[in-house]
């Protein structure tokens, strides 16, 4: 398998996303905002459609749309007087509707579109890998630098706000990080499954962790193992990589659930 360049590139891109998605998703899941990644994914779909229509790189337009969508969700939630789930629904449906209209205008309801919806990790090029690795490294560095305030806001957002911690800036940063993660993960698992990599590893880690830091590190480990195992299984069993990766992550969640239940006995 490793003698094939497309598999080496796929494993490289997958490893970056496998680490970044749960590292960012951790702070969403712990704050009961698990579906934010999904909402941003649907806006990214509108971005892909705009890219196809305008004949610009769909990855770039998806990245721009995803960041705008992520910041919009956070703005509506915190300042717009809209409940979190309604803010999400508003962006979610607007994104998918805009995507459908734009893609129809471009006359591109075809295979090209499907690679963004369901992933196309086996077509990752060297340039793609450089972009994914560079943005992924920046994203991880920001998470590492801001781990303590982000974790503190998970513990007690209102207490931190009262003490003058810049909650708004931190929340916008998480939204922007989530958007970048979605845009980078599109090639790996596709827009429709992107949020799974941000949520399932974190949920699995939460069943067996003994502290917040251990939950964070275990989330990353589960994400990485799921992507690498899923890609390997999909190669040998001739299965679609995106779906296989997410099914592996779901299986790990099942194992962690059972292990957690056994430990509490």
């Amino acid at each position: 398998m490793l003698e094939l360049e497309f598999m080496r590139l796929a494993l490289g891109a997958g490893a970056v996303v496998g680490v970044l998605a749960p590292a960012v998703g951790f702070f969403l899941v712990q704050r009961r905002q698990s579906l934010v990644g999904d909402g941003i994914g649907h806006v990214a779909f509108a971005g892909v459609a705009a890219g196809i229509l305008l004949d610009v790189s769909p990855i770039v337009t998806a990245l721009v749309a995803a960041v705008l969508g992520g910041v919009a969700i956070e703005f509506l939630r915190s300042k717009g007087g809209t409940a979190g789930d309604q803010a999400l629904a508003l962006v979610f449906y607007t994104g998918i509707a805009a995507g459908v209209v734009l893609i129809s205008a471009a006359g591109a309801l075809n295979v090209d579109l499907f690679q963004y919806l369901f992933g196309s990790i086996l077509t990752v090029t060297r340039t793609d890998l450089v972009v994914i690795a560079s943005l992924g490294t920046v994203g991880l560095a920001i998470v590492g630098l801001l781990y303590r305030p982000l974790a503190g806001v998970v513990v007690d957002e209102e207490g931190a706000r009262v003490a003058g911690v810049p909650i708004g800036a931190l929340n916008v940063t998480v939204a922007a990080l989530a958007a970048v993660t979605v845009a980078l993960s599109m090639r790996v698992v596709g827009i429709l499954l992107v949020a799974a990599l941000m949520v399932l590893p974190v949920s699995a880690a939460g069943r067996i962790a003994w502290s917040m830091r251990s939950a964070f590190l275990l989330s990353i480990a589960v994400g990485l193992v799921s992507v690498l195992t899923g890609l390997t299984v999909s190669y040998y069993a001739d299965l679609p990589p995106g779906g296989t990766i997410v099914l592996v992550a779901a299986a790990v969640f099942g194992v962690a659930l059972a292990a957690g239940a056994l430990r509490r006995r």
Binding site: V29, Q30, R31, R32, R148, P149, A151, G152, V154, V155, D156, E157, E158, G159, A160, V162, A163, G164, V165, G206, A209, W210, S211, M212, R213, S214, A215
Partner: peptide
């Protein structure tokens, strides 16, 4: 200013230890 919010708003879903919770008090 120290503020202890109503309990339903505290803690999220994270398995934070006592030390991790208290460390959050040194953020500001």
């Amino acid at each position: 200013l120290g503020y202890l919010a109503q309990r339903s708003e505290l803690g999220g879903d994270a398995p934070a230890t006592v030390r991790e919770v208290v460390s959050a008090g040194r953020l500001a």
